[in-house]
Simulated assay, not measured.
Amino acid sequence: MELFDVYPLVDITPVRALGATLWDDQGREYLDFYGGHAVISIGHSHPHYVQRLTEQVQRIGFYSNSVQIPIQRELAEKLGRVSGYEDYALFLCNSGAEANENALKLASFHTGKTRVIAFKGAFHGRTSGAVAATDNPKIVAPFNAGHAISFLDYDLAAVEQVLHGGDVCAVIIEPIQGVGGIVSPSDEFLRELAGLCRQHGALLVADEVQSGYGRSGRFFAHQHAGIRPDIISVAKGMGNGFPIGGILIAPELKASHGLLGTTFGGNHLACAAALAVLEVMEQENLVEHAAELGHYLRRELEAHAGAEEIRGRGLMVGIKYGFPVKNLRDQLLAEHHIFVGNAADPTVLRLLPPLNITKAEVDRFLMAL
């Protein structure tokens, strides 16, 4: 049996990793300035992370959600305290797509409405509802196309016009679009959007799958705008490579048993990984580090990168050039052994390094660029 091709593959086989460094099967060393799509939040093979997972698997690795799993409550309490959402409830699943799928489903259950407002350039995942709310017709199968989705620009008048129809259950938005090319609505737009949702009885869903977990220099990127969404979806950096996702649910949204469910979500190993991430983030002040080092990185890029625009916040950075960046990305990898990312916009280079990247490693990237 052959593997089904998912992405065009780079001819590199990583076999070992530590911090922001990868080694391939030929012994070559690489700087990871992409974190495997923003997944590596606390660095590869962090000793505390390895210890946490090792100790957990030696005790128990899995049992279903039909029994008491105390480590889930430990994770919920820790995440609530660290993020500032102690009064919210946590539903655990396995990925960002599942998180967004369940967020939209919960919004529809709660409101009894069917329509979703999403934004142009959005990427919310590849499951049925999540991919329908993703602005990329190429990955929406006919089976997924029956959902009532309105794709809008960051235009408050257009949002209000659709909300006036009375059938919108949720407005889903990435506080910083990742795949879309590190595109951000303004803080004022997010504040006005939250007000419109309240006014019209629609739930505001913040997709923090890529922009959350300290990536922007705040725990969640929407916190720069001072808003509190009804539902917040998380994944990627939450587990530092171990599959885990979830939604944070506002206290006024009550869900009865059976509305949401999962087999593997919140298993013992996933929760151990997620707790290790939060513990390291606290111990090493990684949110503050992302803010400080991200400011340095963007300042240097603005001065020396020769780009049209430097986008993003913290260590979620987009460099927009006036030409397609594929050759530049390939050259950084082939000649300088540095992994960086691209975006749906072919002129944007996407940077998503581990949050504990060092200044010396940032300078190495800047020199190569």
Rank of each mutant, 00 (worst) to 15 (best):
Y49I: 04
V50Q: 03
V50I: 09
V50Y: 03
V50S: 09
V50T: 05
V50N: 06
V50F: 02
Q51L: 06
Q51A: 01
Q51C: 01
Q51I: 02
R52I: 03
L53N: 11
L53V: 15
T54L: 02
E55I: 04
Q56D: 01
Q56A: 06
Q56W: 04
Q56M: 01
V57D: 10
V57I: 09
V57C: 09
Q58F: 10
R59M: 06
R59G: 02
R59Y: 02
R59E: 05
R59N: 04
R59T: 09
I60M: 13
I60P: 08
I60Q: 15
I60D: 14
G61F: 00
G61A: 02
G61W: 03
G61Q: 03
F62N: 10
F62T: 10
Y63D: 11
Y63L: 08
Y63K: 13
Y63F: 11
Y63I: 09
S64I: 07
S64W: 09
N65I: 06
S66P: 07
S66M: 12
S66G: 14
V67F: 09
V67G: 13
V67H: 15
V67T: 14
V67E: 14
Q68K: 13
I69F: 08
I69P: 00
P70N: 02
I71S: 08
I71T: 01
Q72T: 06
Q72E: 06
Q72N: 07
Q72F: 08
Q72D: 10
R73K: 13
R73W: 10
E74Y: 06
E74G: 01
E74A: 13
E74L: 08
E74R: 12
L75N: 00
L75D: 04
L75Y: 00
L75A: 00
A76I: 07
A76T: 05
E77P: 07
E77K: 13
E77D: 15
K78S: 10
K78C: 12
K78W: 10
K78F: 08
K78P: 09
L79K: 02
L79S: 00
L79P: 02
G80P: 01
G80S: 03
G80Q: 00
G80R: 00
R81D: 11
R81P: 02
V82P: 13
V82H: 13
S83L: 07
S83A: 15
G84P: 13
G84W: 05
G84A: 07
G84Y: 09
Y85D: 02
Y85W: 05
Y85S: 04
E86I: 08
E86V: 06
E86W: 07
E86D: 14
E86N: 12
E86Y: 03
D87R: 15
D87N: 15
D87E: 13
D87M: 06
Y88D: 08
A89W: 04
A89L: 06
A89D: 11
A89Y: 04
L90F: 04
L90P: 09
L90E: 07
F91W: 15
F91C: 12
F91E: 13
L92G: 07
C93R: 09
C93F: 12
C93A: 12
C93K: 13
N94K: 06
N94G: 08
N94A: 01
S95K: 01
S95N: 05
S95W: 00
G96S: 12
G96C: 09
A97M: 02
A97S: 15
E98H: 03
E98S: 03
E98P: 03
E98D: 00
